[in-house]
Design a protein around this nucleic acid. Structure first.
Length: 112
DNA sequence: GTGGTGACGACAC
DNA sequence: GGTGTCGCCACCA
């Protein structure tokens, strides 16, 4: 309600909230799913607002193309890593170890 | 309408 | 494989 946020943001949240437990995805994958592959930066920009939202956005499951926890700094320290490890995702050096295995492609999974 | 910014991606060294 | 640089589009002042 009171979606004062741009539709683009909502699109991002919709996809992020569809990420299954114990899985991760990349900003580029989401951007591509939205049809704006070149706007991968906007995905992170949108997630920046997720903290302002009341809905629990599992933004900690979203990492960059290298599987690096680029947004952990925005979570507030190692909170992002803690959440990932809580889901059984191994994180080392601020990056997902088996990122390639745990990678969840919204385009493929959503049948895009 | 213009300019600056950004939780990225791809390319080059 | 790691680091640095450029480019991309959408949002905000």
């Amino acid at each position: 309600m009171t979606k004062n946020l741009p539709d683009f943001y909502m699109m991002v949240y919709e996809v992020v909230k569809k990420i299954p437990y114990g899985r991760v995805t990349s900003y580029g994958a989401i951007a591509k799913c939205l049809g704006t592959a070149q706007s991968s930066r906007m995905v992170g920009y949108a997630l920046n607002n997720c903290h302002h939202l009341e809905d629990p956005i599992p933004a900690h499951r979203v990492v960059n193309r290298n599987g690096l926890l680029s947004g952990k700094h925005h979570f507030g320290g190692n909170v992002m890593q803690q959440l990932l490890e809580s889901e059984g995702i191994e994180v080392e050096k601020d990056k997902v170890v088996k990122f390639r295995e745990l990678f969840w492609d919204p385009i493929k999974e959503l049948g895009f």
